[in-house]
Amino acid sequence: MNVFRLTGDLSHLAAIIILLLKIWKTRSCAGISGKSQILFALVFTTRYLDLLTSFISLYNTSMKVIYIGCSYATVYLIYMKFRATYDGNHDSFRVEFLVVPVGGLAVLINHDFSPLEILWTFSIYLESVAILPQLFMISKTGEAETITTHYLFCLGLYRALYLFNWIWRYYFEGFFDMIAIVAGVVQTVLYCD
């Protein structure tokens, strides 16, 4: 664990909490792309299946449980509890155009052709494009509430910090994962705008 990864995880956690609290307090999900939130829930589900098979640390396990719990809670609030405030007309990005190519790529380019590894690779590729429906929705509505921009900033910052984490780990541990790095660069670039 290094300072970049820790601040990255905390920034990620902050983004997830900011969004969840914003929807809960305002009792509205106006301006929020439910599709992006579903994609994030899918990212965490496919990436953290190893919760069932391996224990790395209390921090690792608790953060994974929190991420999964909050992402499903957010999806629940959008599509169930505050469904009336969901702006479906503007949330019209065709996610199948993301999931299918990402799924195909995960099967073609991965570290190991095992189910868990392919699902992990799928989650890495999907996470890099999961924000597109949200960005698309903001471009259609032409506006983003302040809190949504805070959410996007923290979310973008998290993966940018992970890039520094990977530089750190390569330099000090000789560890690097090309798939995560390439997807992380794509993800960070997407947030820059």
């Binding site: 990436r47 790395i56 570290h111 992970y162």
Partner: peptide, 10 residues
Amino acid sequence: EDDANLKDEL
């Protein structure tokens, strides 16, 4: 190779 599979990152 196995450390690449050990996913210790979130």
